[in-house]
Amino acid sequence: MRKLKSAILGPGNIGMDLMYKIMSRGKNIELKLVSGIVAGSRGLALARENGFETSLDGVESILADPEIRVVFECTSAKAHLANAPRYEEAGKVAIDLTPAAVGPYVVPAVNLEQHVGGVNFNMVTCGGQATVPVVAAVNAVTPVEYAEIVATLSSKSAGPGTRANIDEFTETTADAVVSVGGAKKGKAVIILNPAEPPLLMRNTVYCKVQNPERIARISAQVGLMVEKVKQYVPGYRLRLGPELDGDRVIMMVEVEGEGSYLPKYSGNLDIITATALATAEEVAARILHSCPQNRGEW
């Protein structure tokens, strides 16, 4: 079966983790090029070792290759803001793993279907990917008046980008809890814990609901949702709840990384790369099936 060719811009931790995921389970997507701007980067060396084209021209080499249809942006919000219009002009779909939010927030288990024809997909935040599905599941049973999420990450798994702009995490996540999760109001908190050995990424979700008596249905719906997310984030699991406590429903989800490139405690990075691949797979499936020339039959 024909696969759509993709490129990774930014051969850092996220880019490399994504590379290994595409190698191990890309069905509609294959990797062609990994591009960066820093000579001697470990990521580029790994990409070469694994047989991929590499380049030091950054975005330019991707734009210059008409074969590449999907770009994974693993750089920074600033870089993606500059690159996004150029990808679109060049007819490439952008999967944005930065906080730029040029395109809509996409949480595959919740709203990918509604955006799948788009050209730019934002992956929200790790906390958003872990918690928005749960909020949406509760909201499908009873209106969520207020959702609050607390993401706890191991210090080791929080990179310099997250640290330098931690407000971006809380604001974007709270935003997605409302706009994608369906809560009327949202709040997000992030905590870094330096314990050794590093802890797994943990997310607590509190929902204030209109109909707490529907707890059995909430449980069933959340259970289904967790299975749905697990299909593309294998290490995603419900650790506690849903549990009723006064007017709030409490749930905790944990993300164990696959350990494809990054250690297992980096569930926060794993969930983003796994989500990016899942999104790209759906988008690619649609492109491959809708345009006959892409099927390789003609």
């Binding site: 706890t152 905590i191 814990n193 314990a195 607590t204 549990e243 409490i250 905790m252």
Partner: peptide
């Protein structure tokens, strides 16, 4: 024992 830090009140329920 779990080396919790400030702000991890959710772990209490867990």
């Amino acid at each position: 024992r779990l080396k919790t830090v400030g702000g991890q009140e959710d772990l209490i329920i867990d």
